[in-house]
Design a protein around this nucleic acid. Structure first.
Lengths: 216, 216
DNA sequence: CAGATAAATGAACGCCCGTTCATTTGAAAA
DNA sequence: TTTTCAAATGAACGGGCGTTCATTTATCTG
């Protein structure tokens, strides 16, 4: 038998992606078989190869689509205003974008090692582009004197880890709403970088001498 | 053949743990076969079962040993002084403990899902105990008025994510030494929670009403 | 209505998996 | 020297893996 009813192109394809995302996030890329994915989609394993070159491409496409959607969404967010205003907007954007996408966020951090070297480089470049958007805000705030911090690159990575970490513990049915969590984190982020009377004992930017030098 | 030379008990055992840790961290629990582990140890696959009940127990033992060593090390660190002093000591301890153990830290975050439900509960309880040590410091600082923050539990999880995130990007041969990174993060952590003239617009502890209620 | 084609089947390929176990080995104990 | 036994072997178990492909089917095109 084949094609039991109706035209399935444009239905099976997206379904494969959805199922693969969910199963990969639940059990890990290596632990999920093509036959399991096929079973949940409702087809035989062979049919998956009408929609993906192989299992590796399935993972790469999920991660690439996620990263590109992230970039597009940030573009659309259109951050404006003073560096502190931009930072708050970035914080709220990051939380709002990531909280409803816990599966793919988890995948993006855990399964990079299962990408081929070429594919890894492509995903890492997309991530780097996103990080650079935050780093630019921090650097702008240093120039204006709104922010005080020792190292823009390291602070960028720290803040992103702080914010993304929410996806590891947030429970939609738990004590706090997403909006309340966002308030807590806006506070933490703002206070962590804002210049003020409680200056660091040592000058900020101590390690920023070659801060453009690629790796942190 | 068996036991080609010398007595191997007490040598093979630890070697199995070391190799399993390294391979699990590199490729993921599900992607590593018992035969691969055995090959790197220098024995046949069957011999591994003299040292572990099964593959799952191998993972659990690694994670449990790590969490218990973390707890013991924190006990030994013997944090004293004012809440701000304790917080700085905790920050430095966390970084110093985790940076040289990047493999097992990664494992601890990525492979929890590969534990059986009972084993997961045991590891989660150990982690919770560690988190509670930081939360106690934050609560103490709220009492003394040294700290200002909206929610001790959420802030705890945030700070731990911030600090642990270092292991994801730190490069020992990179731009910064571990000590320099620790300085940047001590700054971020201190400023994120310290009370000062730049008070939050809304009162701290807004969401702390039932902060002891288990899940965040 | 006939032909083309998109979509899925299901069997098959060779290979690797976790685990068990009777057997062999060689060092330590007597 | 003889006995004992921890430690390791290597074959075997049933089963699942990713992927390919000739074939079948249901729908769309003309």
């Amino acid at each position: 038998m084949a094609r039991k009813q109706g035209s399935h192109a444009g239905i099976t394809g997206p379904k494969v992606q959805e199922v693969a995302l969910r199963l990969f996030a639940q059990a890990g890329f290596a632990a999920v078989s093509m036959r399991q994915i096929a079973a949940e989609v409702g087809v035989q394993a062979g049919a998956l190869y009408n929609y993906t070159a192989d299992k590796q491409a399935l993972l790469f496409d999920l991660l690439r689509d996620h990263m590109m959607e992230l970039g597009r969404a940030l573009d659309a967010a259109d951050l404006r205003g003073t560096p502190p205003a931009q930072l708050e907007a970035f914080t709220r954007f990051h939380i709002a974008f990531h909280l409803p996408r816990r599966d793919v966020v988890f995948l993006s951090y855990m399964e990079l090692r299962n990408l081929s070297p070429e594919n890894y480089v492509r995903i890492a470049a997309l991530r780097r582009g996103y990080e650079d958007r935050l780093e630019a805000i921090l650097r702008a705030g240093l120039q204006t004197g709104d922010f005080a911090l020792r190292d823009p690159r390291v602070t960028t990575l720290g803040l992103i880890a702080l914010l993304t970490g929410i996806t590891n513990w947030y429970d939609p049915g738990g004590r706090l709403t997403a909006a309340e969590v966002a308030e807590v984190y806006c506070d933490l982020v703002r206070r962590a970088v804002t210049a003020g009377p409680d200056l660091p004992e040592r000058p900020a930017e101590t390690f920023a001498r070659d801060a453009h030098a690629g790796k942190a």
